[in-house]
């Protein structure tokens, strides 16, 4: 694990300031950001030390996952080569499928969810409270038998529209869209409620219709939450296993979660190091997207414009 030493740490500076001033500055620094680093490091350790096992297994050409506590006893790239070059496990295709399915699901989820949240937040209509409650309650139904139901539904849809049925990305995305509302809508709804209505009114006075207010004003102001919801939807759909495993059976159609799980589904034959190498690579899109979008979450228009 790497942590950057704060270059502003006073120890690293020549002690030119008088003693009392220096200790005061130290105290201020500690109260300002020092403790944050300490907490940050502690939580980062908690967050990543189980993942070190995955890394260690990925770099150990024929290792087990938890069989040994001697991490990184051997380092090599065999398992990466193994998972990338096996024609029966088209890792690149899985990767592309995952990114496409996750990406489309995320974008559509954000769009559908934001529309619903806008309606719930800005309009009053009969059935509004009922609608909100329905969204919440549907999420609570135990999904023990969901796979059976979805398989039946998708197989009969596929009978008529093969391009939307089993074994298609479009079909799977449609199933994921079933969950586009729900929790995400609530998250956006809460955020929308914090945007002053005076803004809408001003626009309305200027003759803007609801569509225009929604697309050109509201969506701009709630950008941070749109990014958060998009990210959540992306992660959820890329990690989803149960439905994807039943819907996608052809090797070249699988997502990473399904394909990788099958590498280790039979513990007797499990190739943990190849699996771990795959898992490490499959976590990359999430991390990259998060890093790329972070500034939109924390430095959105609202925060940026006041500075």
């Amino acid at each position: 694990m790497t942590t950057t030493l704060n270059p502003e740490t006073p120890v690293a500076r020549p002690a030119v300031a008088p003693r009392s001033a220096r200790s005061r500055r130290l105290r201020r620094l500690w109260r300002d950001t020092g403790w944050r680093h300490l907490v940050g490091i502690a939580v980062v350790i908690y967050a990543i030390f189980p993942i070190l096992y995955v890394l260690s297994a990925a770099f150990n050409p024929n290792g087990t996952l938890t069989g040994s506590n001697a991490l990184f006893s051997e380092v090599g790239f065999d398992s990466f080569a193994r998972i990338l070059n096996n024609p029966d496990q088209p890792f690149a295709a899985w990767f592309a499928n995952t990114v496409i399915i996750g990406g489309v699901t995320a974008l559509l989820t954000v769009f559908l969810g934001a529309m619903a949240a806008y309606a719930f937040s800005r309009m009053r209509f009969s059935g509004r409270r009922m609608g909100l409650l329905t969204l919440l309650l549907v999420q609570m139904f135990p999904q023990l038998l969901a796979v059976v139901a979805i398989f039946l539904l998708m197989s009969s849809i596929g009978d008529i529209f093969p391009a939307l049925g089993l074994n298609t990305k479009t079909g799977l995305i449609m199933v994921y869209m079933g969950g586009a509302l729900g929790v995400n809508t609530y998250l956006m709804y809460g955020f929308f409620n914090t945007i002053p209505v005076s803004i809408d009114e001003a626009a309305k006075i200027d003759g803007a219709g609801h569509t225009r207010i929604f697309f050109t004003i509201i969506l701009r102001l709630v950008l941070p939450i749109l990014v958060v919801v998009g990210l959540l939807a992306f992660i959820t759909s890329t990690n989803e296993y149960v439905i994807a495993s039943v819907m996608l059976t052809d090797p070249e159609n699988k997502t990473l979660a399904v394909g990788l799980y099958q590498l280790v589904s039979n513990p007797r034959y499990a190739d943990w190091s190849a699996f771990s190498a795959g898992a490490v690579m499959s976590a990359l899109p999430v991390v990259i997207i998060f890093v790329a979008l972070q500034k939109y979450i924390v430095g959105g228009l609202t925060a940026g414009s006041v500075k």
Binding site: G103, T168, L223, D250, Y296, G304
Partner: peptide
Amino acid sequence: VKPQRFIALGAIATSAALLLSACSGGGTD
């Protein structure tokens, strides 16, 4: 941030990806 560009990009990406996935879906069948 320039949200308009961001949203436009999102819309383009969505439709492109939808088209892509629809094509590949049809192809495998």
